[in-house]
Amino acid sequence: MIRKTIGIVDYGVGNHASVQRAFQALGYRCWISRDSDVLADSDVIVLPGVGAYPSAMSALHTNGLVKFLRDQVRLGQPMIGLCLGMQLLADESHEHEITAGLGLIPGKVVPLESAYWHIGWNTIEIVNGDKLLIPSDGESVYFNHSYVFKVPKEYQICISRLDKPFTVGVRRGNVVGLQFHPEKSQSAGRIILKNLVEGLNRA
């Protein structure tokens, strides 16, 4: 069996090493790269991210990755955004200032309504019957964020709750975003990553 390859986007923001090791532990080949040829050759592009939205988008622009990522999605290459990487998929963010995002999934990133932050382990609920995430319905995963992706319901695949429910998983075709950190969610997270990589296929 040919092992799938994961192209982790290196734009100088985030915890690439943790993400890489999580995929390697699942048996996938991983490249951390900002080289568009390397990323385009992978079966799945993973966009990680830790930090603030404006500096992350600025880093994507600086590294010439914005157009590349948009083009690859148009070509049908599967992409997974993790935490801040999920938020970057949006049209815009209101973190610190209004910043245009990648615009791959309609919606905007706004502050959490129920709390200042959402930190720790929380339960996820799968909505809209997404087959790739259904096995993980009710699992606890690790969150660490203060902004959320406000998205039309048709793109919502996963929610979590504080006082109110909010979106923690989005999908549009082959593009999936997860607000939590599956790479730091122990066995629950690894099952999610495996199901996504195996379930998303090039168009």
Partner: peptide, 9 residues
């Protein structure tokens, strides 16, 4: 620090 990493970190 917060502006770089987010206050949650």
């Amino acid at each position: 620090l917060s502006r770089e990493l987010g206050t949650q970190a």
